[in-house]
Nucleic acid binder design. Structure first.
Length: 741
DNA sequence: AGCACGCCGACT
DNA sequence: GTCGGCGTGCTC
């Protein structure tokens, strides 16, 4: 009698809730090959072959045998550890996402799984050091030295890449290979990020920094989970402190992960890392080349990437032995992913640290309210770094009441800079220092309207105004990327010369600044002027070399860059972020303005910050002026507690979208009728989502609000499972929604 | 997410 | 009469 063929569960990388069952592959001897949970396999799905992971638990014997297909191949990459499998399950459960979608983020590199048949790669040869003595004999020309330098920093170069990076011809590479200084290989698994130089001396730490660093080091050595908030103003030296913790993790032989907001992953941060550790860390972000992605993924999985720095998706990588997680700028909203799987990388990082049995550090000058509430409840601990490193005090913050100091009209149109702000800029420029004008709004004008008929230029796919970008002579939608030429006549009434820009964007502030200060060197810094790392670096260099003395920028100027000669910051519209009814509007405005303010000042000169506001009594403005962050958090906490809003209550947004508005409303009405009654929870809606029309799809939103003790996920699951959505209608749940857009 | 199956308009 | 549009539904 034949034995039943053996099956196992495989989670494939499709938006599928649970693993599918497959037959174990047959070896050459005709027997089935046993597999361990975590092994990466290729399996047939439909008529395709996709990556998947052998999952925990037994296959479902009820699935008919004839439905089962055989596993095609088993990848050479190290199996996904139980820690990561459990993490994937946890995230899927928490975010109400299909497990396969979450797994896909962890296997984000299809090429990484292929067996290596790649190109010939070069690295420093293993016995290069022993050949060092021969250096006198062999002529180590400068061209050769350049190649050695490049290859010492990181291995895994193709001949062409290596020659290009070193700026030499490929014959130099060939020559060095012949000499045995570098060697070639084919195996991607051997790719490694060099170990940081652990005896590199960091900067002298202040006693406060030293105490904080010692605390973190002992946590890393303790190899157990704890969450620490590293709380210190800009310039208090948080980075140096957590660098010590990274070094401790390396000494333990474990890996360290640093999560940064995408925008802060600047070359400045990497330069500091290189200075401290002598080598570059492994980087992980959205625009890595596929080849580097593959190499990095494999290096992380096999423990050959000691330090990984990356944006939120770096959290999903298959670390072989994670000993420390740092989340820098932990309050940043960009840690929340809002497409595909809706997750907050900071919160999930805490979960992953728990699973890894390692400490996690949340660093910020303006910790999120959630984070501070967790400190108060004792779930998180806190280390405070007082004062500014290097002696400069926090800048003076003054409020300019726009109701009394109204910006004068310019010849070209309305002005946006008050007398007080103009005077301060003049003073600063005359003193030979730098000033910055901050406005968190790209483009020239956020709204264009027709003087004749009142028509407003709107995006055809979204409920949003088109933003004029004068540099490109175009209109853009900042939500879907729609772009059109600036029309000559009103598209509605046909009137000529009738379209007028309304309100300011940074381009318009540049125009005003040039008009008011013709002698100044004005520069614009916005996300759309910094399209490449090279362009960004050039701009940062120009500012640091003082080729620019009046900088105009959006929020990109607030993050990660240090401009030592900047002594004045003017905020053009401090109230901007407060509109829109967003749950976190006040908190985000406070954080952003606090961070912008922190750009002003240096060791010798106290900085000055001027906030233009129409509501100087607002708690955000008052606490910014007083420099009292904790008072702001107190007021904000009270407001939230009163409304039973996060972090004192819980939220989940249910976003229903579809191309047909009446069908959508119909379905939403059905959902509304079946809203269940709960103690301690309520469901509001349907309301038009803030962008009622986005990318050509209509949107409605329900909001589940629950007491802290009740999980909104369960409520959403029960409620939504009662009613099946028509196929053209999509329902997504955003647990812990961050922005309400 | 793909990819095929399915049921209604313009083509050699 | 078919070729093909993309709406719908499944994938162990």
């Amino acid at each position: 009698m034949n034995k039943q063929p053996l099956r196992c569960r495989v989670q494939v990388v499709l938006p599928i809730e649970k693993p599918y069952d497959y037959l174990l592959p047959y070896g050459t001897d005709g027997a089935q090959i046993a597999l361990e949970p975590g092994q990466v396999v290729m399996v047939p799905v439909g008529r395709r072959v996709l990556p998947g992971v052998v999952w925990d638990g037994d296959a479902d014997e009820n699935v008919p045998l004839k439905k089962l297909k055989e596993i095609v191949s088993v990848s050479e990459v190290p199996p996904l550890r139980e820690e990561l499998r459990k993490f994937v399950e946890w995230v899927a459960n928490y975010t109400l996402s299909p497990q396969g979608s979450v797994l896909k983020m962890a296997l984000s590199v299809p090429q990484a799984l292929e067996d290596q048949v790649g190109q010939k790669l070069y690295r420093l040869s293993g016995d290069a050091l022993s050949k060092e003595g021969e250096r006198e004999k062999t002529r180590l020309t400068s061209a050769r030295q350049k190649v050695i330098d490049v290859v010492t920093n990181s291995g895994g170069w193709t001949s062409a890449d290596l020659a290009r990076e070193a700026g030499v011809s490929s014959s130099v590479v060939k020559g060095l290979e012949k000499l045995g200084m570098i060697e070639s290989y084919f195996e991607a698994p051997d790719f490694f990020f060099p170990a940081p130089v652990s005896d590199a001396v960091g900067p002298e730490l202040s006693p406060d920094q030293k105490a904080a660093a010692d605390d973190l080091v002992s946590r890393v050595q303790g190899r157990s989970f704890s969450t620490v908030v590293l709380d210190g103003v800009t310039g208090s030296g948080k980075t140096e402190v957590y660098f010590e913790a990274i070094e401790a993790a390396l000494r333990e032989g474990r890996q360290a992960l640093v999560l940064l907001p995408e925008i802060a992953l600047s070359s400045q941060w990497l330069d500091r890392f290189k200075q401290r550790f002598g080598v570059a860390p492994a980087e992980w972000h959205s625009d890595l080349t596929p080849a580097l992605r593959r190499k990095t993924w494999r290096a992380v999985a096999s423990g050959k990437a000691p330090v990984v720095v990356g944006a939120r998706s770096a959290l999903m990588l298959p670390y072989s032995d994670l000993g420390l997680i740092i989340v820098d700028e932990e309050h940043e909203g960009s840690f929340k992913q809002e497409d595909g799987v809706y997750y907050h990388a900071r919160d999930m990082a805490v979960v992953r640290a728990k699973g890894c049995g390692c400490p996690i550090v949340l660093a910020s000058a303006t910790p999120a309210l959630e984070t501070m509430v967790n400190v108060q409840s004792g779930r998180y601990e806190r280390l405070i770094l007082p004062g500014r490193h290097g002696g400069a005090g926090m800048p003076d913050v003054e409020l300019i009441d726009l109701r009394f100091d109204k910006p004068e009209r310019l010849q070209s149109g309305p002005g946006w800079l008050s007398q007080a702000l103009r005077g301060a800029i003049r003073q600063t420029l005359e003193a030979g220092e730098q000033a910055m004008l901050f406005l968190n709004r790209r483009g020239y004008a956020p709204l264009t309207l027709c003087r004749t008929c009142g028509h407003r230029l709107q995006c055809p796919h979204c409920t949003a105004w088109l933003v004029e970008h004068r540099r490109f002579r175009r209109l853009q939608c900042h939500h879907c990327g729609f772009s059109a030429a600036l029309p000559e006549t009103c598209p509605s009434c046909g009137a000529e010369d009738s379209l007028v820009p309304c309100g300011p964007g940074v381009e318009r502030i540049v125009e005003e600044a040039k008009l008011l200060f013709p002698e100044a060197n004005v520069a614009l810094m916005a996300s759309d002027t910094m399209t490449s790392p090279a362009a960004t670096k050039e701009m940062v260099d120009r500012i640091q070399n003082r080729e620019v003395n009046l900088l105009v920028g959006t929020q990109v100027v607030a993050k990660g860059y240090h401009f030592p000669y900047l002594t004045l910051v003017g905020v053009v519209d401090a109230d901007l972020g407060l509109f829109g009814g967003d749950l976190r509007a006040a908190e985000r405005t406070f954080q952003l303005l606090h961070q912008v303010a922190g750009r002003a000042g240096r060791a010798e000169h106290k900085g000055r910050v001027l906030l233009q506001t129409s509501d100087p009594k607002h708690p955000v403005m008052q606490t910014l002026k007083e420099g009292d962050r904790d008072k702001f958090l107190e007021i904000e906490a009270e407001t939230r507690a009163r409304g039973n809003l996060p972090p004192f209550g819980r939220l989940a947004a249910v976003i229903v979208s579809g191309p047909d508005e009446s069908e959508l409303d119909n379905f939403c009405a059905g959902l509304a009728r079946s809203i269940p009654q709960f103690d301690g929870a309520q469901i509001l809606g349907p309301a038009p989502a803030p962008l009622a029309l986005l990318r050509g799809k209509f949107r409605r939103r329900f909001l589940i609000m629950s007491k802290k003790t009740i999980a909104p996920q369960g409520i959403a699951r029960n409620w939504l499972s009662q009613l099946k959505a028509p196929s053209r209608i999509k329902v997504v749940v955003d647990v812990d929604p961050y922005s309400f857009l």
